[in-house]
Design a protein around this nucleic acid. Structure first.
Lengths: 340, 340
DNA sequence: ATGATTGGTGCAAGCGATTGCGCAGGTCAG
DNA sequence: CTGACCTGCGCAATCGCTTGCACCAATCAT
């Protein structure tokens, strides 16, 4: 009796090998594995047991080709130049990966600054992924425009009114608003706002929350202590310097990048937190833990946002009904930096 | 004249569509793109120009299937629970991705603790990747054993004598050895060593460097001030407490995780660095920058190690000659923490 | 002028799955 | 007993690209 070449070697099995060994057709094996199509329960079990024993796994490329599905998704990350940003993006990625793995998807990572769209194009055109997660969302976002034009499923982390854009975000607006209210209710008189990068929707929402928080407490937004263009450490310290000339008693920092600089600046000048100036941040990265004084801040579950983004994406891919805009809750951490 | 269905729609082109439009065969198009096989230069240019105009990209799954190559590699990451570890792994990943992208490969990320091998198996068995990068290497490494048994190309970040294992690492041994020598030459008398996780090759090398650095200076390794089992913050502080009872004047920390705790502990106890105790670390993550006192440390280029790991891996995949063990250089940063 | 190369191209058989369709055999109602 | 219907399974086409082989025309040496 002849042997069938491959049969003897330790090479990878194919669905045909399995079929032959079992005396059934390849289609039957395929149906047994996928569970789709009509197949007898007994045959099904027999196949499943066999492939388990022989630890057969279907070839992903072949399956992709036949199904026009890759079981890959990509997550688009910015170049994280600053340590402050790293925990957010890394954890977020981790969360997305967790969900992907559970659903037998793989996560492909793509780092790009906001301008270079080439990597995205390659993925889409080659059909290497079934969908994408955008970890950063701009008010006018070239990536979004591109992805929309291709029709590939995607979800963005951030905020958007566009009915074609699925988003997942923390409730930055609500968080900041409540935080401001809380600070004012604790005897703080004037809260300055230090922010920047207003082309990012996340930052817009935070600022809006700040404004509405003030209004709700019957205060007006005072532009002389509001900064929304602080895109460098130097600018931040300049802003603090200006704020110090006013009778402001609290600085609300848009994020930890800014908070980091504010705290350092005040420390350098020997200005005590919270005695001389109170400080709060709209975001809590673990980095804040390393400061000499604990910082009042909003706390978001960054891993969860990654998970939700991925869940939503997979939902879209699979044609399920999913929420167009998901908003995750926040926690307010009152710490020493606003005590008094 | 009949039109060919797809022709009119904006759907994805195939190599056949291109062929038909150009009046050549699909094989010719394929050869034009790949540059392999015999093809006339004029035809080649004609094809290339056309696919550029129409921005045609070959389907990755089909290509994979035909070539038995995925143009994907995976990077295996630990679950980064601590902020201290994040910069290393994240940056390393980023470096790997940079090289992958340049070579038209995609980077797939897989997070797993050292024990769960399932995700690796799935990738290998499904043939979803052409190779893997292990970001952590243990002395007895189940992942390595598994990967060796499958024959899939892989490179590990760490150190190994195994002739079958390609590695990339920083010169931890050389760095620690030189650092210890330097400290001793600057008037420091006794250097304690605080480390842990000795099943990781990286840590072994650091410790060996420490030992040989002492010997080279004519000193003996004094086990009463050597700790190699510090796997929790609590254990670290206990160790510092013990060390303080001796007349040790310098603590060498295996990594920033430990250094972090040492610095905090000393600060809590009001023990001045460097006056009462000098501190150095075998690794510099950006986190050290946030300490009140700048820390003497070894500095490694973590992005570069990711790049090199990826380069080596791609080399193996493409059957090129590559170095079996790559050692990257270090820098020694002398800072305040060891001054005096 | 003729036979041996060589360069350029097309044919067709893969790669390893998925899936619409058809067929055989069994069940059931009339 | 017959026709309608359902179940379980196999056939063969398909997904889109690669590649060994065969073929033809042009080129070269003799």
């Amino acid at each position: 009796m002849e042997t069938y070449g491959k049969e003897s070697s330790k090479e990878n099995l194919t669905i045909h090998d399995v079929a032959k060994a079992l005396g059934v057709s390849a289609s039957t094996v395929s149906r047994a594995i996928s569970g789709k199509g009509r197949i007898g329960e007994k045959t099904r079990q027999r196949v499943l047991q066999y492939i388990d024993e022989k630890s057969f796994y279907p070839n992903a490329s072949a399956r992709s080709l036949a199904q026009s599905k890759t079981y890959n998704i990509a997550i688009i990350m910015p170049e994280v130049k600053d340590l402050v940003d790293m925990p957010f993006f890394h954890t977020c990625m981790h969360g997305a990966e967790e969900i992907a793995q559970v659903n037998d998807y793989d996560l492909l990572i793509v780092t790009t600054d906001g301008t270079n769209i080439k990597p995205l194009e390659r993925m889409v055109n080659n059909r290497k992924v079934d969908g994408m997660i955008l970890t950063r969302l701009y008010r006018e976002d070239a990536f979004v425009d591109y992805l929309k034009s291709t029709g590939i499923p995607f979800v963005a982390i951030g905020n958007s009114d566009d009915p074609d854009v699925y988003t997942v975000d923390h409730d930055n607006y609500g968080g900041c608003r409540e935080l401001v209210g809380l600070l004012l209710s604790k005897g703080i008189r004037r809260v300055a706002y230090l922010g920047g990068g207003m082309e990012q929707t996340v930052n817009i929402k935070r600022f809006e929350g700040y404004c509405d928080g003030l209004k709700e407490a019957g205060k007006q937004v005072d532009n002389s202590i509001v900064y929304t263009d602080l895109i460098s450490k130097v600018k931040v310290s300049k802003a603090v310097e200006e704020v110090l000339k006013t009778d402001t008693d609290c600085i609300l920092c848009q994020d930890d990048y800014i908070c980091d600089e504010v705290v350092h600046y005040l420390a350098d000048k020997g200005i005590d937190i919270p005695k001389k100036m109170k400080v709060a941040s709209c975001h809590h990265s673990k980095l804040l833990d390393n400061f000499p004084v604990t910082i009042t801040s909003l706390k978001f579950d960054t891993m969860e946002i990654g998970r939700r983004a991925c869940k939503t994406l997979l939902g879209i891919i699979n044609g399920e009904k999913v929420y167009k805009n998901t908003l995750l809750d926040y926690e307010i951490n009152l710490k020493e930096s606003t005590k008094g």
